[in-house]
Amino acid sequence: MTIRRHHDMGGLDAGPVETTEHDYAMWEKRVDAIVKVLSTPDRKLLSTDELRRGIEELGPGVYDELSYYERWISSATNLLLEKGVITVDELGTKMAEVEARWIKDREAAE
């Protein structure tokens, strides 16, 4: 079998290169910082190759649907769950708290 994995795209046909770009948003920089800090030699909670493996395992649909740093945080979060650094319950509770806080902050600002 000659399996070509989805992320391994060298040589495939694609449209012209769109040379547009955007400035990174603060949340994207934060994803980057989370990954770098977790992978320092004294922590080694993540490695670049684990992060890549996790991104590849998101599957073709999700890979294309998510932006670059969306893929990174998805993979990093899965790895933290796998390794028991955080639990599903902690993550769900914290996400609900963050969302509620942001909505409240926004409403307070109006």
Binding site: R30, Y69, I73
Partner: peptide, 17 residues
């Protein structure tokens, strides 16, 4: 994913990582 990023950042700080 933005909410997830925020949540993970806060969790790893709270856990002292």
């Amino acid at each position: 994913r933005m909410v997830m990023t925020q949540a993970v950042a806060e969790l790893i700080v709270e856990k002292g990582i």
